Amino acid sequence: MLTGAGVSFSIQDAGVDEDAIKIRLTGTDPADLALELARAKALAVSRKDPHAWVLGSDQTLDLEGTMVSKAPDLAAARLRLLSMRGRTHHLNAAAALAHDGVVVWSGVDTARMTLRHFSDGFLDHYLAAEGEALLGSVGCYRLEGMGSQLFDRVEGDYFTVLGMPLWPVLDELRRVGVIAT
């Protein structure tokens, strides 16, 4: 997304133990959890390189009050998609900007997404075509690919679904002078 928007960046693993944060924040609203994970990632990298502007991001999926985590394998992805078939979930995308070891901005956006009543045959074809790439997505879909066929309706920003609330991030990067106004 940032490349497409013309923003130069480099990637660094934050080394954040997401599972420990999730355990510590058990019971937290999924949108707030996404925000805390994004903040933790931005802070971890900013503390290593305090003069850099660091953007951290994360997503959480709320299926009717239950937080869903990434599937460990394609069998679990199949079960996940079957459990979501015909149902609506909320996908929360959060981002945080840190500088000098301090979070200077953070935000979260939520998309409301309804999967259609797809056939078992379509699901098998989808899983075979997309393969293990789906395991990197909390919802086991990529809306920018064949996953778009899973849905009846998506309400919210496309970039939020892809993983980051891009418009607010770009606004903040302009505000702090990282990109041109």
Rank of each mutant, 00 (worst) to 15 (best):
M1I: 04
A5M: 06
S8H: 12
F9A: 12
S10P: 01
I11S: 05
Q12N: 02
Q12T: 09
Q12P: 00
A14T: 04
A14H: 02
G15Y: 04
E18G: 05
E18A: 09
E18H: 07
D19G: 08
R24K: 10
R24E: 15
T26R: 03
T28A: 13
A31W: 02
L33W: 04
L33Q: 03
L35R: 12
L37S: 00
L37N: 00
L37D: 00
A38K: 01
R39F: 00
R39Q: 05
L43C: 03
A44Q: 01
A44W: 02
V45I: 11
K48C: 11
K48Y: 07
K48V: 05
D49V: 13
H51M: 13
W53K: 08
V54D: 00
Q59I: 06
T60Q: 07
L61W: 07
E64A: 11
E64M: 04
T66D: 10
M67C: 05
K70F: 07
A71Q: 11
P72R: 10
R78Q: 15
R78C: 11
L79T: 15
L81V: 02
L82N: 07
L82Y: 00
G86H: 05
T88M: 07
H89M: 08
H90S: 06
H90D: 07
L91Y: 08
N92W: 05
N92P: 06
A93Y: 07
A93D: 00
A94I: 06
A96P: 01
L97A: 01
D100M: 11
W105R: 05
M113N: 09
M113E: 09
R116D: 15
G121A: 15
G121E: 10
F122I: 03
D124G: 08
H125P: 00
Y126R: 11
L127D: 13
E132V: 09
L135K: 14
L135T: 12
S137Q: 13
V138M: 10
G139N: 05
C140I: 08
Y141N: 04
Y141M: 05
R142C: 01
R142V: 10
E144T: 11
S148G: 15
L150M: 07
E155C: 13
E155A: 14
Y158E: 06
F159T: 07
L162S: 08
P165G: 12
L166K: 08
L166M: 08
W167E: 10
P168M: 01
V169C: 04
V169Q: 02
L170F: 04
E172K: 13
L173K: 14
L173C: 05
L173G: 08
R174I: 00
R175Y: 02
V178T: 10
V178S: 06
V178Q: 10
T181D: 07
